[in-house]
Structures are given as C-alpha cells and as structure tokens.
Design a protein around this nucleic acid. Structure first.
Length: 310
DNA sequence: TGGTGTTTACTGTACT
DNA sequence: AGTACAGTAAACACCA
C-alpha cells in the first residue's frame, strides 16, 4: 500500500476504509459515540477528498454502519432530541484490522446473535437477556463463528433481529485484544488511568441516563489495567500503527467472551445495565481514548496535519 | 420532505 | 481459483 506524503491528503483519497474513518470519528469524540451527521462532519473536516460526492460516500458509510457489527447504535435519550441515533464502537471490535493496513481488515468483526430458543442447548447469555439472571453459564457456542450474524446458514435458520437475541463472538476474539494492529492502534494508545476510572463507557452510560458508580472495575475485576510489563515496541509500520502489545488481562484468562452490543432489539430495548458492561466494553473504550490523541499528535508522521485540528 | 437506517446486489481488489 | 473484504448503487422503510 502506498504511503501518501504527509501533506498529500488534501485532495486524494485517504488510505483508510470507511470503517477506519468512522472509528476515528467516533473515537475522537468525547463521548465515544457520534450521530451520523457528526461522523460526516468529522470526515469532511479532516479529509477534503470527502467534501465532494457526498451522496456516494455517505451512502457507503451508512451501509458500513449498518452492515458491520463493529458499530453499535445507541438510541438518543428523550432529552436529546434529534435525528438518528448515536453510533459507537463495539466493545470487542479491537481485533479486526490487518497488520498495518486500515484499508483492509484482518477479518470482519461479527457479533453472534442467537435465537433464544435455538441456543438452549448451549446458551450464550446476553446480559440484557430476560433470562440471564437465571443462568450463569457463559459458554461460547461451539459453532459460534458459523452462526454469526449474517452468515447465510444462520440467516437461513433463525433470521435476523429476533426478539430474543443472545450474543457471542464470532471470529475467535474472546478474551480481549491481543493484536497490536487493532482498531485502537489506529486511534488510541495508552489506556491506563482512563480505564481505572471506568471512562469513557461511563459517559455512554451517563448519556443513556444511568447513574454510573465508580465500580466498573469491581464489577469486572479482571478487566485489564494495562500492565507495566507489557512489551512496547518503538517500531511503527506504515500509516502510523504502533507495533506493540497493547495490554493483557491481569486476571482470569478464561473469561467468557460475552460482548455487550448495545444494539437494541424491539422488545429488549437498549437499556444497558452496569452489570451488562462486558470486559471488552471497558477495555475498548478505555484503550481507544488515548490513541485518538496519538493519532492527532501524528507521532508516527503518517497522518495529515489536518488531523491536528481537533 | 429529507435524513437516517437496513438490506440486497454487484464489482473490484487482496489474500490464501 | 476461491474466498473475503471494500466500495458502490439502489430500493425501501422509518421518523423528526
């Protein structure tokens, strides 16, 4: 992939996919979520290329938001009138980018949605699931990846957006973010501190109108606090991706992979509870926080100076 | 009515 | 060559 000159993004297409661009925009926001219009605005502000043909790329971007499970829709609070919902990054989407390339992901991030009745034999419990409190078993379905949302086999059998949805990971992303080329490598770097405070997921919770006690880490004690011993490389591949281990879990390594998509369902609504915060939720939001700063600081020399405007 | 969101279909490209 | 992903177009529904 050609590396554009440092000042070459003015009018040519940036070397980022729509997914990357959208993730940047979301992560650059203080609340880690943005309405569609603000995502448009972020992209147009920073990449002049996208100030033209808006119909085309905005349609593509909307397609990506809906199609890719790495983006989750967060409904507006009643006191925040406006068009459309907020969009945020899925807690466990941090593993999808190919090494050094933000034009192409390593793999598509998918969230498994299983019909409640169809997964009784191997329940994957969604924290908002009405029956979740009755069953504390969190087993990934052996065929979880095959049953991931959008997979023809799955669509053919149970359909999409059922009223009782459970979630599990497809793509073997359980347990956190082990890859240095994660999406947060694009937009975040040092997550310590932020993680300890439980932000910014707390801001999301606050946005939704819930009180956010400072107990996120006590609820999820295994949620990683960036280890001091985490190896950090000083090498950077093209496009400003820091080659380094981001962190590892300090607690149990066999925690269940139960992401917490906030994608609402018609019956369950989109009401997350604090206990519904999966480890990845805190991890991702926290880790993404600082990397946005990294991005804007252009420490790698790969980003256009216009990115510094934020 | 326009913006938003979902879905399907298709093409091009990169990877295995 | 087959597969997966990205990009684009388009149709349609919903809603402020």
């Amino acid at each position: 992939m050609p590396r554009p000159g440092k000042n070459s993004y003015s009018d040519q297409k940036p070397p980022y996919s729509y997914i990357s661009l959208t993730a940047m925009a979301i992560q650059n926001s203080s609340e880690k979520m943005l309405p569609l219009s603000d995502i448009y605005k972020f992209i147009m502000d920073r990449f002049p290329y996208y100030r033209e043909n808006t119909q085309r790329w905005q349609n593509s971007l909307r397609h990506n938001l809906s199609f890719n499970d790495c983006f989750i829709k967060i409904p507006r609070r009643p006191d925040q009138p406006g068009k459309g919902s907020f969009w945020a990054l899925h807690p466990d989407c941090g593993d999808m980018f190919e090494n050094g390339s933000f034009l192409r992901r390593r793999k598509r991030f998918k969230v498994l949605r299983m019909e409640h009745a169809a997964c009784k034999s191997a329940p994957i419990l969604h924290p908002y699931h009405p029956h979740a409190q009755h069953n504390h078993t969190h087993h990934a379905h052996p065929h979880a990846s095959k049953l991931s949302m959008g997979h023809p086999d799955y669509l053919g059998s149970v359909g999409r957006l059922s009223h009782f949805q459970s979630y599990a990971l497809g793509g073997g992303q359980s347990g956190g973010f082990k890859h240095p080329f994660a999406i947060e490598s694009l937009i975040g770097r040092d997550y310590k501190g932020v993680m300890a405070s439980g932000l910014p997921i707390a801001s999301v919770m606050h946005h939704l109108g819930y009180s956010v006690p400072s107990m996120v880490n006590s609820v999820w004690p295994h949620v990683g606090v960036l280890s001091e011993s985490t190896p950090v490389s000083s090498e950077y591949p093209p496009f400003g991706v820091a080659v380094k281990g981001l962190y590892h879990h300090t607690g149990s390594s066999n925690m269940p992979a139960v992401p917490v998509p906030i994608k609402p369902t018609p019956t369950l609504g989109a009401v997350p509870s604090l206990t519904g915060l999966a480890p990845g939720t805190v991890q991702l939001c926290s880790r993404l926080d600082r990397e946005a700063t990294d991005l804007m600081e252009d420490k790698t020399g790969a980003l256009h100076p216009s990115l510094l405007q934020s």
